[in-house]
Each structure stands twice: as structure tokens, then as C-alpha cells.
Amino acid sequence: MRFHTRKWIKPEDLNPNGTLFGGKLLAWIDEEAALYSIIQLENQKTVTKYMSEIDFKSSAQQGDIVEIGIEVVKFGTASLTLKCEVRNKMTRKTIIVVDKIIMVSLDEDGKSKPHGKTKVEFVKDRLIKE
């Protein structure tokens, strides 16, 4: 799994217990999945269709640095299925795992649009082709 993004836990990210608010973490995961999928599918009109159950393994405190990892599970006709893990950068403890996030490529009318992709591509490799 590749860990693409790091977040620094600040006071505004905490719940009343003084630990990372789960809703904030889920928003970060959703944004990371969207950004990853938009780049992979080369379509800015890519949206979250489904997120499987989430499994909180541990928490994070103010000042901790967490990193968000995304891995492609499957390419569908108009979708991309991802897996996500968030871990504490310093301790390497897993904070949360989301086994399945389905992102869908849309056309101008908001209907699913086939993307024609079958494997992970890196932007640097696309630039070489052009």
C-alpha cells in the first residue's frame, strides 16, 4: 500500500474525548480516495459510490501525524475499487481500515461513464508518452 498524504492532528480535529474525531478522519479518507481516483481515471467528475464498514483499530492525539494509504483493489468498467489504511506515522499503529471504497467516473450528465482503465498508472509515465 502506498501512503500518499500526511495530516497533522490539530485541536480542531479532536472530539470531546481529546482524540481524533472519526468524522474528520472519514472526510480525509473520502477526499484522498477522490483525489487518487480522479488522477487514475483522468476524470474530475469522479464520485464516491460506496464505503464499506470501517474498523477503528486505535486513535490519534493532538500533535500526532497520520498518513493515509490507498491501494487499488479492482478496476470496473466505470468504477475503481480501493482499500484504505490510516496509520500513525511515528508509531506505525493502524488507526483505521476501510476494506472497500468504490469510486465511479461520471459523464457530463451525471451518469456512469466507462473509463477504459485496467491498471494503475503513474503521472510520470503518462508524461513520457506525450
Rank of each mutant, 00 (worst) to 15 (best):
K113N: 14
Y50L: 12
T118F: 05
R87T: 11
D125N: 15
A60P: 01
K83M: 08
L14T: 09
N17R: 05
E71I: 03
M51N: 01
L35Y: 11
C84W: 01
G22C: 06
N15M: 00
L20A: 06
L25T: 02
K89R: 09
I101M: 12
I70F: 03
I38L: 04
E85Y: 03
D30T: 13
N43P: 07
A34R: 11
H4P: 00
K24I: 14
A27Y: 05
I54P: 01
D107W: 01
K24W: 15
D109H: 08
L26R: 04
S58T: 14
L41K: 06
L80A: 09
S105T: 06
V98N: 07
V123P: 01
E42M: 07
M1N: 09
H115G: 02
R6T: 15
L80K: 09
K49I: 01
I70Y: 02
K24M: 10
P114H: 01
F122R: 13
E85R: 12
V72H: 00
Q40V: 10
T81P: 03
T77K: 14
S52V: 03
V97F: 06
R92M: 06
E85M: 05
W28A: 05
I96T: 15
D109P: 00
R92K: 14
T19V: 15
E108R: 12
G23I: 02
T19D: 14
S79W: 06
G22A: 13
L35T: 14
G22E: 09
K7A: 10
I39C: 09
D99F: 00
D109S: 12
G18T: 05
G110A: 05
I29A: 06
R87K: 15
M90H: 13
K93F: 05
M51T: 15
I95P: 00
V104Y: 02
P11K: 02
E31F: 03
R126W: 07
V47L: 14
E67T: 15
G18N: 06
K89L: 10
T94P: 01
I65P: 04
N17E: 13
A78V: 05
V104I: 15
Q62D: 08
Y50D: 03
D107R: 04
L80Y: 07
